[in-house]
């Protein structure tokens, strides 16, 4: 994992300040979306070897949730944007 993540609010910060949650590639379905959609949302994951978008929380910083795009082979971080700004669609 890269040692720094460029928080859009705080600038480059050590990764130890952040907490990862996981795959940011799927939106929370509508309440009536049906059980398949809900199963997919809660349990299925994009898990690529390569570029991947994830939710990371700047826990020891601005406490914003970010969508971080990084590489699961090289661990390079490509971008970090505020999850609220991107909305869920990333």
């Amino acid at each position: 994992m890269a040692s720094l993540i460029a928080c859009p609010h705080c600038g480059p910060r050590p990764k130890e300040e952040f907490t990862v949650r996981g795959d940011a590639g799927i939106n929370r379905p509508a309440p009536d979306a049906g059980k398949d959609a809900w199963y997919a949302y809660v349990y299925l994951r994009d898990n690529p070897r390569g570029r991947h978008k994830e939710h990371w929380h700047h826990t020891s910083g601005c406490r914003r949730w970010l969508v971080v795009e990084r590489d699961t082979m090289t661990h390079a971080v490509y971008s970090a944007v505020d999850a609220a700004v991107t909305g869920e669609t990333v």
Binding site: T19, R21, W65, D82, A83, A84, V85
Partner: peptide, 12 residues
């Protein structure tokens, strides 16, 4: 953390 996730990522 959970509340912040819900507020920021789910229902901004």
């Amino acid at each position: 953390n959970h509340l912040e996730f819900c507020a920021q990522a789910l229902w901004p």
